[in-house]
Design a protein around this nucleic acid. Structure first.
Lengths: 239, 239
DNA sequence: CGTAGTTTTGAGAGGCGTCAAGGAGCGTGG
DNA sequence: CCACGCTCCTTGACGCCTCTCAAAACTACG
């Protein structure tokens, strides 16, 4: 069976509370399904799209885990985000009609393909969808600003604590544990995202383990003291 | 005369090639003018809006210079951007209907007020405007990603060089010099944006002066060797 | 079971932050 | 017009956090 012909059904998708259909009524969701032309499978390590490629579609992560990253001419690399189930990838491509980053699957993944011209067309018809698209873009902007805060004014421990808390919070919204998670990315990718070297990431993990805040076995992380992590990010008495 | 009743005319505005009307035909611009309810003057040091305030409108900078910044509970502060003539402020407020940052005028300024529900309404009518709004949001996302690259993987000299090049490039697009500029922000604000302390900003400026790359007299900066700055940001032989 | 990739840990170096003092520019008021 | 105070900027000395380089242990995978 041709992968590209897999039919999608937002109406029966268990992600509709997290994804584009959020807030749409059944009729609107029905129309949205007609926009989502297909699904696409990406094997671990492969790119959903790469910088420079023509922009055509937004992608909703149906399963799996992605990173987006930009690479400079001199080989510098920056992970700009990690995307999980229900999150939207590709907004970077709208402005210039070309993607400005790579989207790489960190595990075998599947995405819903949403041709952007059709999303725009439907947005003109349905106020709800239009507003939702605006919100998704605004959310990305606000997220980026909080990453700037992290990169611009936090120390290594604070960055990693904020990162872990953000991850479990998003995983918890998807029905996973509040205290346990499996990292889908390497220490180097975490470091790239957090603006630190992989050795520093590793050392900081070890520090947290010493302090009894987390247990770590490779990619598996068990958060034993969430409040301690929160205190690291946001010191209670700093005045 | 009531400031809030100043009538605006995008059609005769010399910023229309940089601002929201970009790419719109005369008829569409005419309709857009009806959306822009008023102008608002902000005195230097005052806020156009503050974090937590209800979001109602986007603002186009008509004159003056702004910074946007977020502040954490423990008093940390991060400048997330500097906005000049023709640039749009307020996109952060869409997602939660409240602003998530402060927008502060760094000099006496004037903005065009664009109630967002009316922008959305008109976007449904005019494909061109809809697409342009999407592009503006996407541009902000791409800009934020490049700031992440800067904060995550550049050293002090590289950051300041990239910052200066970005500023003159934007000023040049507005008809100003390619080599001379007057900074509207303090060393501390530059530092907050670039993730470094004001002393380091000052020292890095001094270093550039020593190297004959720039002249600096307080806020006035003369770039004597643009290529040298570019080489600092993007080393030619790094392989 | 071997090999490549990932992670951990150590030792040393350096860039940037911190603390501190002095100087320059500018608005205010006498 | 000048004196004063405020804010902003510069510069120095020192220390620490993180990077760099290096080696070894562990895991995954073919």
């Amino acid at each position: 069976m041709d992968i590209n012909s897999i039919k999608v059904a937002c109406s029966s998708c268990n992600l509709k509370e997290l994804c584009l259909p959020l807030g749409l009524n059944p009729h609107e969701i029905d129309k949205l399904e007609s926009v989502i032309s297909s699904r696409r499978r990406i094997k671990r390590g492969n790119a959903l799209f790469s910088a420079g490629e023509k922009f055509t579609s937004l992608y909703a992560v149906r399963s799996g885990f992605f990173k987006t990253c930009i690479t400079t001419a001199d080989g510098r690399d920056q992970v700009t985000g990690f995307q999980m189930t229900g999150e939207i990838i590709g907004l970077d491509g709208i402005v210039s009609d070309r993607h400005s980053c790579d989207a790489i699957a960190l595990e075998d993944a599947e995405v819903c393909v949403m041709p952007f011209d059709q999303v725009e067309e439907l947005s003109r018809e349905f106020t709800t969808l239009q507003h939702h698209v605006h919100k998704i873009m605004s959310r990305e902007i606000v997220r980026d600003h909080s990453v700037m805060l992290l990169l611009g004014s936090m120390r290594a421990e604070e960055r990693l604590a904020a990162f872990l808390l953000n991850l479990v919070q998003r995983l918890h919204a998807r029905g996973f544990s509040q205290s346990e998670l499996v990292l889908r990315m390497t220490r180097e990718e975490i470091g790239s995202y957090l603006g630190m070297k992989l050795e520093t990431v590793s050392r900081t993990f070890s520090k947290f383990v010493e302090d009894g805040i987390v247990e770590v076995r490779q990619r598996y992380v068990h958060i034993k003291d969430t409040d301690a992590l929160k205190r690291i990010v946001n010191p209670p008495c700093s005045s």
